[in-house]
Amino acid sequence: MRTVKQPGRPARSRLLSVEAKSGGELRLVLREGDDLLNGLAAALTKAGVASAAVSLAGGGFSRMQYLTGQPCKDGSRVATYGAPTILEGPVMLLSGSAFLGLDQKGMPIVHCHAVLIDNKGKVHGGHLPPGVCKIGRQGAVAHVAAFDGAALTVRHDAETNYPVFHPTALAQAKAAQ
């Protein structure tokens, strides 16, 4: 197995994990014209959910873009994103995985990867950024497992030089147990 040298010193603990209770299950339908990531974040925030695992069951886009990883040439990071691939609709969302959590300012943020098929039948996939994935006529369906007692919070990771989600136990929930 090939390993890579990260720009920062490796953190001692290689696995971070916290337990949570189920905070409820939700099914969500985003409508035509919504942005996928912003729509997910807004709908879940309105439903009182701050952190959750999201499974995208399917849907479509009228226009969208995604990013894929590539080696980073300047040495500041091991990998970085290349130029976006822009797809004109209708683009079908085949499946996707996402997490809702809180960014460094405490605002909701969604991290989402998905598999897509374009209007010529070619399969695509990558990282979907916020604000550029416009839901089409099919809408989009998400199944959501909310967390109770734990959250995902973005922290800057010195080892990789990226802000990434970290599982965080919520003290309030601990006290309540």
């Binding site: 390993t3 990260q6 696995l15 916290v18 209770k21 695992a53 091991v78 990434v164």
Partner: peptide, 8 residues
């Protein structure tokens, strides 16, 4: 539920 981050 277990939420985890696996490092590089």
């Amino acid at each position: 539920m277990v939420l985890a981050r696996v490092r590089p």
